[in-house]
Computed example of a mutant assay.
Amino acid sequence: MTAVAPDSGRAPVLVIGEALVDILVRADGTRSARPGGSPANAAVGLARLGHRIRLATRVGDDLAGRDIRAHLRDSGVELTEGSVVPGPTSTATAHLDAGGAATYDFDIAWEAPEVPAGPFHVHTGSLATALAPGADRVLKSVEAARRAGTVSYDPNIRPLLLGTPAEERPRVERFVALSDVVKASHEDLAWLYPRQDVDSIARAWLESGPSLVVVTLGPDGALARWRDGGCELPAAAVRVTDTVGAGDAFTSGLLSGLLDGGLLGAAPDAGTPRVRLGGRAAADVLASALVGAIGAAALTCMREGADPPTRAALERWRRGG
């Protein structure tokens, strides 16, 4: 898929996290493989929506790694120095049920490369913020990035690779507190905080630092909360092929809208809100970003694997085309 030409007027984005091969095992037993990894998917989604994207990741120098690099390059994503390393590329095997919902097995190694400094928006999450030894370097990178720009985070919990919820909560909450925008799924919250209400968790996270928390609710849409407001959005009615990459497409659609509206990028002046969500203009930007997120996820669900839309495709969807 050809990427949209980047718009130099938008803030540049650095994505930190894993790129791997998604192996799809369908309910009928057939298999296929394609590039994936939650942060890499979000990077591709943002690039296809016209943003300048650099990805700090770990990709092997094997055939699978070459395929991933070609996929990223074709979508307009640039790898940072040190992202290609000797050895095999990580894999995630997605087992699809009859309805297209996925469960995962992983064979992954994660060592974060050095990341460039600069005034830009940084997005991270998923296994990159959870797996040693790379997770500690990602945390330090996020702490440094906050001083120069804004940060978003998607925990994208993978229980098979983690400890207990009690062990993981402090790490997740540290990244939440460092972030300006947090996107999570209701499955993430159900695992981290068993039997707790999604809305109360989102509001508690807001109190710790972010300006915006958005929770995807699967077929029930999404819930968004910010300091002085909130809303719920229904999901788009589409014929689902599979759900692989839908959450990452939602993230890229959300961040794209916030970047387009100038709400993310350079660090704010001391004493001012990090993301100014008050006022009519910001409310309009946020509403448009949330609709774009729903649309990006819906279009991805209609395709096999993590295949987020271009800006042109998303605009057609907005117009009902």
Score class of each variant (00 low, 15 high):
residue 286 L to V: 00
residue 223 L to N: 08
residue 148 A to P: 04
residue 239 R to V: 02
residue 275 V to K: 05
residue 262 G to V: 00
residue 135 A to G: 10
residue 319 R to E: 15
residue 308 P to Y: 04
residue 135 A to T: 10
residue 25 V to C: 07
residue 68 I to W: 00
residue 11 A to M: 03
residue 21 V to W: 06
residue 194 P to F: 03
residue 191 W to P: 09
residue 93 T to L: 00
residue 232 E to Q: 13
residue 193 Y to N: 07
residue 320 G to Q: 06
residue 306 A to Q: 07
residue 165 P to V: 13
residue 33 A to G: 11
residue 135 A to R: 14
residue 239 R to S: 07
residue 210 P to R: 11
residue 315 E to R: 07
residue 167 E to V: 01
residue 161 L to V: 13
residue 13 V to N: 04
residue 32 S to V: 00
residue 20 L to H: 08
residue 84 V to A: 02
residue 154 D to T: 10
residue 272 T to A: 15
residue 306 A to H: 05
residue 294 I to F: 11
residue 43 A to S: 11
residue 82 G to T: 12
residue 169 R to D: 12
residue 78 E to S: 07
residue 152 S to R: 12
residue 321 G to D: 15
residue 213 V to Q: 11
residue 318 R to I: 03
residue 119 P to G: 13
residue 246 A to W: 07
residue 223 L to W: 11
residue 86 P to Y: 13
residue 186 H to L: 10
residue 268 P to Q: 07
residue 293 A to Y: 06
residue 165 P to E: 14
residue 72 L to Y: 06
residue 292 G to T: 01
residue 217 L to S: 14
residue 11 A to K: 04
residue 206 L to D: 13
residue 23 I to L: 05
residue 265 G to F: 06
residue 129 T to C: 14
residue 18 E to P: 03
residue 67 D to P: 01
residue 305 G to K: 08
residue 231 C to T: 08
residue 18 E to H: 06
residue 264 L to N: 00
residue 6 P to H: 15
residue 143 E to G: 09
residue 126 S to M: 08
residue 267 A to K: 11
residue 213 V to R: 09
residue 73 R to C: 06
residue 231 C to W: 07
residue 320 G to L: 03
residue 295 G to C: 01
residue 291 V to P: 00
residue 223 L to R: 10
residue 107 D to W: 01
residue 203 R to E: 11
residue 132 A to Q: 09
residue 155 P to R: 09
residue 215 V to P: 13
residue 48 R to V: 05
residue 33 A to M: 13
residue 308 P to W: 00
residue 168 E to I: 06
residue 235 A to Q: 04
residue 5 A to D: 11
residue 309 P to S: 03
residue 131 L to V: 04
residue 209 G to K: 12
residue 68 I to Y: 00
residue 165 P to D: 13
residue 50 G to I: 06
residue 78 E to W: 07
residue 69 R to M: 10
residue 104 Y to H: 08
residue 26 R to P: 02
residue 60 G to A: 12
residue 5 A to C: 09
residue 201 I to R: 13
residue 254 L to K: 00
residue 41 N to Q: 14
residue 43 A to C: 12
residue 299 L to S: 14
residue 21 V to F: 05
residue 205 W to C: 04
residue 123 H to G: 12
residue 156 N to E: 13
residue 91 T to A: 00
residue 297 A to V: 05
residue 203 R to K: 13
residue 52 R to H: 05
residue 96 L to V: 02
residue 77 V to M: 04
residue 88 P to Q: 04
residue 297 A to R: 02
residue 3 A to D: 08
residue 44 V to P: 05
residue 19 A to Y: 03
residue 181 V to D: 03
residue 3 A to N: 07
residue 162 L to D: 01
residue 230 G to H: 01
residue 65 G to A: 09
residue 7 D to A: 12
residue 297 A to D: 02
residue 20 L to P: 08
residue 79 L to F: 09
residue 220 D to V: 04
residue 277 L to M: 15
residue 214 V to K: 09
residue 287 A to H: 15
residue 183 K to Q: 08
residue 293 A to R: 00
residue 287 A to C: 14
residue 166 A to Y: 01
